Simulated scan of single mutants.
Amino acid sequence: MHNKEINICLVGFGNAAQEFCRMLITKRLEVKESRGYDIKVTAIAGRSKGGIINARGIDLTKVLRDVENSGRFDSTAEDTVTMETLQIIRNCNANLLIELSSLSIHDGEPAITHIETAFDGGMHVITGNKGPIAFKYQKLRDNSKEKGLQFLYETTVMDGTPIFNFVKYALPGCKVLSFKGILNSTTNFVLEQMESGNSYEDAIKEAKRRGFAEADPTLDIDGWDAAAKTAALLNVLMDTNINPTEIDRKGISHITLEDIEKAKVENCKIKLICEGYIEDNKVKGRVHPVYINYKDTFSNIDATSSILAITTDLMGEVQIIEKNPEIQQTAYGIYSDLLTLIKTL
């Protein structure tokens, strides 16, 4: 990178991207003074909000205000463009792509193509989209290494909680043998509501009201989001090549209040568990509802909290808990990857 500048092309401008921009506004001067890099967003490709390219740096305060007021970028601004996302990536002259588009659970596209295009253009990549890690991690990793570029993805599982960095930097010499986690906020919240006596339908409505669930919560309820996270963890931590469709998956739509009461009789709660393990010398993944005893740490993971237990050959089991994250924690994962990138330059 020249002149110690990082020029960002931001793909996707949803809640996480907007919060990251707020964080960057607050932290930009600090990063410049402490790390010696001037961070600018020079391009944004928003699926429904429009596109912007400005080599001098986009006025993020104005962009955030425009989106808040009208739901899209100012079409009369001189730096507004009508290009498609791939055109913006190819023409923006940025040196870092931050991929925050929506997850496609079936194939990880178009995020994978966005990342490949960025690598072809000599750009480092940070992704908060778990699709590329769940579907094509090894190829993207190898591509970045061949080109001498960084490929970072901490935000893809458990928001800003340092899962991948923890294993990479804090567990040197350890081999991950298996993992188990509660990784989907919506299903955890719904099951907790049902434990309190609310019906499945009312629990879904409450999750939507609080913003935990999408208008169509199928990806969460049927276990697809959890399967994508399981695949991502398997691909990175256990060096395999698996995708969400290959995960043994069962969601929670069949769980009834009667099931919840049966679990209580046995001093248990029902939790949607993600697992990665080796069986018959083959790495496998599973997502399924499980009875968890009240004495187990996993039973106390409430509301939108998450937990991941990682079992290694040398360190045994290590557990990491994220307590009721907000959108700021997701944005922090992106910001932490940005700081990690700076360390390597």
Rank of each mutant, 00 (worst) to 15 (best):
C274V: 08
R249D: 07
R286F: 06
K262A: 15
Y294L: 10
D220Y: 08
L314G: 04
R286H: 09
N235P: 05
Y294V: 03
N267Q: 13
K250H: 08
D225E: 10
Y291D: 10
E258I: 06
N267F: 04
L314S: 06
I278Q: 14
Y291F: 13
L234W: 05
Y277V: 07
H288N: 13
D222C: 10
I255T: 02
K295R: 14
C274K: 01
P289V: 03
N243P: 08
Q319I: 00
A309W: 10
I273W: 03
V283T: 08
P244Q: 01
I292S: 04
V265L: 13
V290S: 14
I270K: 06
I292C: 10
K271L: 01
I221P: 05
G316W: 06
T297Y: 11
K250V: 07
G285V: 03
I292Q: 03
V318N: 01
V236I: 12
D296C: 06
S299A: 15
K269P: 04
V318S: 12
C268P: 01
L308D: 08
D222A: 12
I242F: 05
N241K: 11
A228P: 00
P244H: 03
T245I: 03
I260C: 11
K264Q: 09
N267G: 02
L308R: 08
H254W: 06
H254C: 07
N241V: 06
N293L: 04
I242Y: 06
T297M: 13
L233Q: 11
G223N: 06
N235R: 08
D225A: 14
A309G: 10
G285N: 07
N267V: 00
I307Y: 12
R286I: 01
I278D: 11
L237Y: 01
I252F: 01
L234Y: 02
M238V: 04
N300Q: 15
I260E: 11
T230Q: 00
S253W: 06
N293D: 10
G276T: 02
N293C: 00
V265T: 12
V265M: 09
K282T: 12
N243D: 14
L257C: 12
H254Q: 13
I242L: 10
K295S: 15
E261K: 14
G223S: 02
E258K: 09
A232S: 09
S305G: 13
K295C: 13
G276S: 05
C274M: 12
S306C: 14
N267E: 11
T240D: 00
V318F: 11
S305D: 07
P289I: 00
V290L: 14
K262F: 10
K271P: 05
K264N: 10
A226F: 00
Q319Y: 06
K282M: 13
